[in-house]
Design a protein around this nucleic acid. Structure first.
Lengths: 215, 215
DNA sequence: TTCGAACGGTACTGTACAGTACTGCTCGCA
DNA sequence: TGCGAGCAGTACTGTACAGTACCGTTCGAA
């Protein structure tokens, strides 16, 4: 009972349209929030009629859910790459590698789009519990588990000590680095991210404290 | 004391009404968010007519702004009390006092109402920048500055060392304790706060790491 | 060239809600 | 007991928007 013929050309077209709608919806939802966004604007920005939009997505709820679900792994993928380089750090470079990791956190997570996306997911985590949970599990938590694995690897190589709970250690590192700037950005606005010198001081101090415990 | 000559009865009445409206508005905004909330429901829950509501507040925006502004110092006050007890900790009890502080953070900030309020402020920090900034400055940052002062005091007494930047040290402690559970709660929902054993492990590990650096 | 499905444009429907207008009651005060 | 202010109740206005219906056009397949 597939209404579409099996021709791949039409399927491609269909998929391209769907991507355009999701792209447009991402922008509109990020700008106005869930309730503030209108399907009219999404359709217009995707250069698609509302009829087409509603052929792809049953209703506004589903459009939102699928749109945000699409972003779950974006940030995590970036951090996983950095975590991977940590595993094979030469012995004398642990401090430098951790400092590098801190910069990776700050540089990735404090980007305006990431902050707006974060705010949106948090804002709608009661209306869309599955979306919030997925974001946490597949994005947030996942990248810290990966980071924890890298730290355990460093511990196995004797470059860190006392890493009984690798994931917890990873969260501690992230907390040392991100807690102040992330909260500041969440509350005081995207343009309230601390200046580079401040971030440098925070990153240095985070590495010092982390190595005092695990170095 | 009261500069006004007469009519205090009516003024009291007026003020009581205003408080009732703000109380009702707090509940309604927390439940539905800014756009999702209706002034009809606020008026009904405050047992007040819409006319009366609009006599107290020019429009919905102002109602929201004043309602949330009213909450800025609620959480900070609770934490400041705990921070105050830290200052005069006897020498042998530093670890226990820090552990106590960690419990204070977790117990205060992970309460369902606090989480919902946090989500709301974050969600509306673009529509209401003043509100978000005020919440950060008067609530969040303020309590950590106070905590930093207490830590500097401990350092002056020789119970901590290396506290060059007390506020930064306070943020590090808060990050070690709160980063994982707060993010989990923000994304995965109010009922996703980790169980008590997990929070215990996090608090213990936070104190260990903090004291490794500053003890 | 012809056929048919999908699509864009657009107008429409129903509903929800911010803010206002009006009426009659109630309550504090003399 | 009577007066006046403020308020509850309620109805109304204007607007915005989710979702649908309809029509004419485009485009791919044979």
């Amino acid at each position: 009972m597939d209404p579409r013929p099996s021709a791949t050309a039409q399927t491609d077209r269909f998929e391209r349209r769907r991507k355009a709608i999701i792209q447009a919806a991402t922008e509109v939802f990020l700008q106005h929030g869930y309730l503030g966004a209108t399907t009219d604007e999404v359709a217009a920005r995707a250069s698609v009629s509302k009829q087409t939009l509603y052929k792809h997505f049953a209703d506004k709820r589903q459009l939102f859910a699928e749109t945000i679900m699409d972003t779950t792994t974006d940030v995590a993928d970036g951090l996983s790459g950095i975590a991977a380089t940590l595993r094979d750090t030469p012995p004398q470079d642990v401090r430098r590698a951790l400092r590098n990791l801190a910069d990776g956190f700050l540089g990735n997570l404090l980007r305006p789009e990431v902050l707006r996306l974060r705010r949106l997911v948090i804002a709608e985590s009661e209306r869309f519990p599955e979306v919030g949970k997925a974001w946490f599990d597949r994005g947030f938590d996942r990248s810290l588990v990966v980071l924890g694995e890298a730290m355990r690897h460093l511990a196995d190589r004797g470059l860190l000590r006392g890493v009984d709970d690798p994931t917890l250690a990873a969260y501690q590192f992230a907390g040392l680095v991100m807690y102040q700037p992330m909260n500041r950005a969440m509350f005081a606005g995207t343009d309230a991210v601390p200046p580079a010198e401040t971030l440098d001081r925070i990153a240095d101090a985070a590495v010092d404290t982390f190595l005092a415990a695990y170095g």
